[in-house]
């Protein structure tokens, strides 16, 4: 059970991030979590937000190069070592985590990640009784 993340291509020059954030503000979209993967010339701005489908349409209308991608969000206990446990489970099953970021929400940690094999990742999540967060549950955070 994946959720929608927005992936936005932004060039490394001043003003490009503002353009994206302004468009989201205009559309009254709230950001729940975000991260930027940067290279020398450009970055990929990844974000989880309220109403991702509408956000995507609004950004496209504003001329932003945006794509929807599917990521997993799981909740882990707020104590040392839990993230390691989770990642180890995927690693043992030979599933690659393409990227991952996280945030702390009340008393739990939320890990957001993409894998190279969503179907098998889902099996690992189920088999290990990991607490998966649905898009609705995530939306309720805002």
């Amino acid at each position: 059970m994946t959720i929608h993340q927005l992936s936005i291509f932004i060039e490394n020059r001043s003003g490009t991030l503002i353009k994206v954030l302004d468009a989201l503000k205009e559309a009254n979209i709230q950001i729940i979590a975000s991260t930027i993967a940067d290279t020398a010339d450009y970055g990929i701005y990844r974000l989880i937000c309220s109403e991702p489908m509408r956000a995507c349409d609004e950004l496209k209308r504003a001329g932003v190069a945006v794509a929807l991608s599917e990521v997993f969000v799981i909740a882990i206990d707020n104590e040392p070592g839990r993230a390691a446990d989770a990642v180890k489970a995927f690693s043992q099953a030979d599933i690659d985590i393409t990227y991952m970021y996280s945030f702390l929400n009340e008393n739990r940690g939320l890990l957001i990640f993409r894998t190279n094999d969503n179907e098998r990742a889902q099996q690992i999540i189920t088999a290990n009784n990991m607490q998966i967060i649905s898009e609705e549950a995530l939306q309720s955070l805002v």
Binding site: S7, F9, D38, E70
Partner: peptide
């Protein structure tokens, strides 16, 4: 320029854009 309609979910990593 990347065409907006060709910028899809597969492009969400720097490796794919590279």
């Amino acid at each position: 320029e990347i065409r907006q309609e060709y910028f899809t979910g597969v492009f969400d990593t720097p490796a794919a854009i590279d």
